[in-house]
Simulated assay, not measured.
Amino acid sequence: MKKIFSLIILLAGIGFFHACEDNEKIVLQQPESFVLNIPKYASGIYDLKNTETIEFTTSQPNYGFTAATLYAVQISLSQNFAEYTTLPGTYSAAKFDISAQDVAVALVALHDVEEESDYPADPHPLYVRLTATIAGSKVEPVYSNVIQLPQVLGYFALEAMTMPEEMYLIGNVAGNWDWNSATEMIPVWGSPGKFWAMQYLGQTEGGDNAEIKFNYAMAWNGNEFGYNEVTIGEGSAGLAGTSDAGGNIGIGNPGWYIVVVTTAIEGREYTFSVDFLPPHVYLQGNVNGGHWGTTDEIHRFAIPALSLGADAEFISPAFTAAAQGDDDGGVRASIQLPGHEWWQTEFMVFDGVFVPRGAGDDQARVAGTAGQRLSINFTKRTGKIE
Rank of each mutant, 00 (worst) to 15 (best):
G44L: 04
K213V: 10
Y143G: 00
V261E: 15
G289R: 09
I54F: 06
E229H: 06
A109C: 11
I38E: 01
W342V: 01
Q151V: 00
A174H: 03
P31F: 10
V128F: 00
F276G: 14
A109L: 11
F81Y: 03
D122V: 08
F301S: 10
Q151K: 15
L110S: 05
P125G: 06
F65T: 05
R332P: 05
T379G: 14
I335K: 08
T294M: 10
N377R: 05
Q363M: 05
A19Q: 08
E52A: 15
L48E: 13
F214P: 08
V281L: 15
H340C: 14
Y41R: 11
N248L: 10
S137M: 05
G247F: 05
K380R: 15
G235I: 10
G238S: 07
I38Y: 02
S99L: 14
M1W: 06
Y63N: 02
G154I: 02
V27C: 09
E211G: 07
I298A: 15
K384Y: 12
P88F: 11
G13M: 09
A240I: 06
E140L: 10
S316F: 12
T382K: 13
G190L: 03
V146A: 09
F350M: 12
P120K: 05
E114Y: 00
G171F: 04
A104F: 06
A182M: 12
A264V: 09
K3Q: 07
N248K: 07
S316A: 14
P88H: 13
I14F: 04
N253V: 07
A359F: 01
A109W: 08
Q148N: 12
L48H: 14
R365G: 07
I265K: 08
V35A: 07
T263D: 15
Y127D: 04
G289T: 06
M348Q: 11
A310D: 04
H340Q: 15
E55A: 13
P254V: 07
S117F: 01
P141S: 13
Y127K: 00
M167L: 14
A237V: 13
G358V: 02
M185F: 14
R300D: 02
R129F: 02
A132K: 01
S43A: 13
E266R: 00
L28M: 14
N80T: 07
P141Y: 13
Y127V: 08
N37D: 07
Q372W: 01
Y91D: 00
H111N: 05
F17M: 03
A94I: 09
P141K: 11
T57F: 04
L7I: 00
H291I: 00
V349K: 03
A370L: 05
P61Y: 02
F17T: 00
P278W: 08
W343K: 02
A109H: 11
L10V: 04
E297D: 13
G247W: 01
N50H: 04
G285A: 08
W343Y: 06
A157C: 14
N172K: 11
T382H: 08
G235M: 08
E386R: 10
V35C: 07
E116W: 02
G246E: 11
A197I: 11
F56R: 02
S307V: 14
A104Y: 06
A182Y: 09
N62G: 06
V260D: 11
Q79V: 13
